[in-house]
Structure formats: structure tokens, C-alpha cells
Design a protein around this nucleic acid. Structure first.
Lengths: 254, 254
DNA sequence: AGGAGAAAATATGTCTGACATAATAATTCT
DNA sequence: AGAATTATTATGTCAGACATATTTTCTCCT
């Protein structure tokens, strides 16, 4: 699992979709903008019109754009964008990993995951719990290796969502995945941070095994607190580092 | 707004996508199934391969399927389906409006909307509130007209989500829209039910205007309770009616 | 002049047929 | 029998054409 990132990376239609999405997400093509006609896009990206149409079809599915015969293709209102879509989330992450984005994604996680955790504790099967336990062991085994830690971490959170048996909560896993990816990217400035969350995961797991919904909710809440804290501090570190780099570049330039 | 339903209804590629989605959602083509090759699909639906590819591109974007060169196109695991997507939600609603689906969708609404409501009360602007107020007035003005009631009802709930300023909560509006559509379909057996929710909406709105997050959360919670109650009773009525119809058909047949 | 209605222009929607590419299946050789 | 090589095949991409639905322009009449 979690191989979704490399899915269509080299496919040309996927490449075009990603690039058009980037232009929209970064605001180069704002809401309501009519984008270049298909033939023009085709020549700009050096692909056939058919490929362009497949790419646009993908973006239509995610609510980013809409087409009307003769009238052209335009960027839809932000409200219609399906931000809970995994690819869209990743593209956003790549295009503008702002603090605002981090704040928002943590806000929803804080709403959804503790409740999902409570439901999991009540409704989950022992096999569900065993799967989450395995994910926990994987995190533990990873030690200080950030890369090895990331995958079981995602499996842990996804396992809880899956255990709820609620298809919509399960679909929310895409959002969690994006959040964890963001955390991972940020953790380069503080390699020890991920590991610190291990005991908090253990606490969640213990409450689940005990089939204690209130405890599970609370434990997950604490984990969310820690995660947000890590992200915020990592981002301020990142900003500081960026500023220094910028500074150095400027000094060198003169 | 809310014209999303007729978006691609007559477009042939949209028709194909919907039909293939139906086959997947109803389990005719289960997870892991390799679906017919594109040429075969093209001849089956009497459209060109290009159109088929655009349709499949749409379904790929929603996580339903994935293709690999030579290996074919297969149905992805349920876990990867983006059930929070508006179109997918509507297709599911049309394909299998089961009680299980209703239960799950209400479970997430119950998790998300009260919290969103609390955030709205704290963070929303007066213009946001005015928009929600307008939606309320629209519901009131609709009287017993189910059709006229539906649109402002959606605007009411969507307005609260928008007021949070959180893009992910806003995207959750698609799920709410699907839920309301389901309620609407069910309300044919009990035309008075929608109107009964009016005072509950008023209570939510009052708490929001008062900028009282706890009260807003609680008021929305009560509204969710009522809504779920309506859905459950409507579904049991529906089942009863279906059974009677079935009975009548059988009697006539012999 | 102004508005209704007809005609032209144009961007998306669809079709056809071809070739490229990569993963699989079959075949050959050691 | 097993490894290496050669077909096979379904998706990926391309090119050019025509269909269709709006928009825009033009024309004509009041």
C-alpha cells in the first residue's frame, strides 16, 4: 500500500493533469478563469489533444474544472473542489505547503480521528485490533529511521478508520495520509520528533484493546495535540531556515 | 447552485462512467476484478474507445479503478474509493440506497457537523451568518413544499461549513448534499417531515448569532438526532411499502 | 434606433484508425 | 528444468476529421 504516489507519475496524461492542477492550486488560473482551449494546451504540453482531454477528465472528476461545449473549460469555485481527494491533497502539498494548510488539515483530523477511535474501540474486531497492533510494532521496530517509521504510522491511523466499518471514515484515510506526508517532510529538521509520538500511539492502542471508547477518544486527542505541536514548531523552524538560506543567497549575490 | 446533477447527464462519456460505476458499486464487478478491455467496452456501450478512455479516466480520479499497460484495468480495493466525492455519492445513492448507507452517512455527519457548527459560531463573519439566515428564510418560505425546501436546506448546512473557513470541512458539503438528497427521496412517504426540522434549524442559527460554540454544537446535535430519526422511520415505511407492492405483484401474477 | 431572428464562427464532444510501449505469455535454447 | 529470447496483447499516445452546441455577428424588420 501507499504506492499511490508513483501511480501515474511517468504517464504523460498524469503529468499534464498534475501541472494544470498546480496552476489552478497556486492561483495562476483563478476561480472562474477560462483556461486555454484544448488544442492550445496540447501544443503547450507537447501532447495530443486526446491526452489533454483525458487529463481534463481527471480534473473534472475532482471538481477543479468544468467544460461546456463552445464556451470552453473554466476553473470551478473553490467550494466545489474535492479537497478530500488523495491526489488533490498531494498536489496541494507540493504546490503550497503553507501553515494555513497545516492548520486546516489538523483541525479536521482533530474532529474526525478521536471520534473514529472511539467507534473503533466499540465496534472493531480483534482482527482489526491485531492489524493496528502490527502497525504499532512496525513503528517501534523502525527506531529512529524516519522513512521506515512513516509507513506503519499511516497503517496505524488507517487501521483505526478501517475498524470503524464506516466507508466515509475510511475514505478520510486519504486526508490522514496527506497530513502524515506533510509531517514527514517537515520532520527533516527534527529527526527525533516522530519517535516521540510512539508512547502516545501505545496509549491509544491500549484504550482500544480495553474497548474503552472514552479513553480511546481522549488518547487520540492527546496524540493530535502532540502532532500539531510538532508541525507548528517544525514549520517555524522551516521558516527560520528558509529565511537564513534566503539571507545567504542575497549576501552571495551582492 | 445544486445544478451539479445535470452536469454531464446527456454527455455520452458521462453516461458510460455512471454505468460502469454502477456495475462496480453494486458488486457486479467486485474488487480486484479485471474489467473488459477498452475495445470491448467501446462496442458494448456503442461509443468510441476515446470516449471509453475519458470515462475510465474519470473513474480513475475517483479511485474506483486503476489501469496498467497490457495487464488491463481492474477494480481497486474499496478502501481506495473516494466515497466523499459528490458524484460517487450520488451514484451510490442511486445504485444501492440501503439502510447501511444511511446509517454510515449519518454517523459522519454527526461527527463533523456539530463541530463545524461550533467553529462557525466562533470564527464566522456576520456576512456568513447572514447567508445562513437567508437560507433559513428560504426554508421557512417554502412551507410544505418539499421541493422548494430542499435547496435552502442544503444552503443552510453548506453555509455553516463555509463559515468555518476550513477547505476540508467545506469539501464535506458534498457528503451533506448526498445525505439531504437521500432524505428528500425518502420524504415522499412523509411530506410533513422536512418542515418539522425548521425550529431545530432556528435553534442552531440563534446559537450561532449568539456566538455560542457549545450551544451551537448541541443544537446541531439535536438536529442530527431528528434527521436520523426521520430517515430511519422513513426507511422502515419504505420497506413496508415495497413489501406490500411486492405482495400485490405476486398476487396479480398467479 | 433598437430589438428579434437568422447565419457564421468556434471550442468542446465524438469517431476512426494507426502506431508505441510495457507487461505477460509462449517459445526456444542451453 | 530453467534461463533467455521472442511473440503477443491491452493500455498509452498520436493524428485528423466531423458533429454539436453556444456564442457572436450580422441582417432585417418594426
Amino acid at each position: 500500500m501507499a504506492k499511490a504516489d508513483s501511480k501515474d507519475s511517468q504517464q504523460s496524461s498524469g503529468h499534464v493533469a498534475r501541472e494544470v492542477a498546480r496552476l489552478i492550486l497556486t492561483g495562476v488560473w483563478r476561480e472562474g478563469t477560462t483556461l486555454p482551449r484544448e488544442i492550445e494546451l496540447a501544443s503547450r504540453f507537447s501532447v495530443s489533444r486526446a491526452s489533454i482531454r483525458e487529463s481534463l477528465s481527471l480534473l473534472k472528476a475532482k471538481g477543479l474544472i468544468a467544460s461546456k461545449q463552445k464556451a470552453g473549460t473554466h476553473v470551478r469555485a473553490r467550494f466545489d473542489w474535492n479537497m478530500l481527494d488523495e491526489e488533490l491533497l498531494n498536489w496541494t502539498l507540493l504546490a503550497l505547503p503553507t501553515q494555513e494548510f497545516a492548520k486546516q488539515i489538523m483541525e479536521v483530523r482533530r474532529i474526525v480521528e478521536p471520534e473514529a477511535c472511539a467507534i473503533c474501540a466499540v465496534r472493531g474486531t480483534d482482527e482489526d485490533f491485531a492489524r493496528i497492533e502490527r502497525a504499532y510494532r512496525g513503528m517501534d521496530a523502525a527506531g529512529m529511521d524516519r522513512v521506515a517509521y512513516a509507513e506503519p504510522d499511516l497503517q496505524f491511523h488507517r487501521g483505526i478508520l478501517i475498524a470503524t466499518g464506516n466507508d466515509f471514515l475510511i475514505a478520510f484515510g486519504a486526508t490522514v495520509a496527506a497530513a502524515l506526508r506533510m509531517s514527514f517532510n517537515l520532520s527533516s529538521t527534527n529527526p527525533g520528533a516522530p519517535r516521540k509520538s510512539l508512547p502516545y500511539h501505545r496509549a491509544v492502542l491500549d484504550e482500544i484493546w480495553a474497548r474503552n471508547p472514552d479513553g480511546a477518544r481522549q488518547a487520540m486527542h492527546k496524540l493530535m495535540d502532540l502532532t500539531e505541536q510538532n508541525i507548528v514548531s517544525a514549520m517555524s523552524r522551516q521558516r527560520k531556515k528558509d529565511a537564513e538560506d534566503e539571507n545567504a543567497r542575497t549576501r552571495r549575490a551582492r
